[in-house]
């Protein structure tokens, strides 16, 4: 049996859900943007990973 035709209610719910999704996506994008701006303000950022970092080695050598 085929589904019944959507009620106007369903269209309203769908539109509401889409708007909420758009708001959440916008909020996530904004928080990301803010993070980038705030972190970048303190200069270059280096993570503590397992890659050789010549800049540190140069520093140690001079000490």
């Amino acid at each position: 049996m085929a589904f019944r035709k959507d009620h106007e209610l369903h269209a309203r719910r769908r539109s509401r859900n889409l708007w909420v999704a758009a708001c959440l996506a916008g909020f996530a994008a904004l928080v990301f943007g803010l993070s980038v701006v705030k972190i970048a303000r303190d200069g270059p950022v280096q993570g503590f990973d397992h890659v050789a970092r010549p800049s540190l080695a140069a520093q140690e050598a001079s000490e």
Binding site: H7, E8, L9, R12, R13, S15, R16, W19, V20
Partner: peptide
């Protein structure tokens, strides 16, 4: 009826 459907819980985003 539509009247009962239109009450609480199904407000539009607007």
């Amino acid at each position: 009826s539509d009247l009962t459907i239109n009450t609480h819980g199904d407000a539009g985003f607007g």
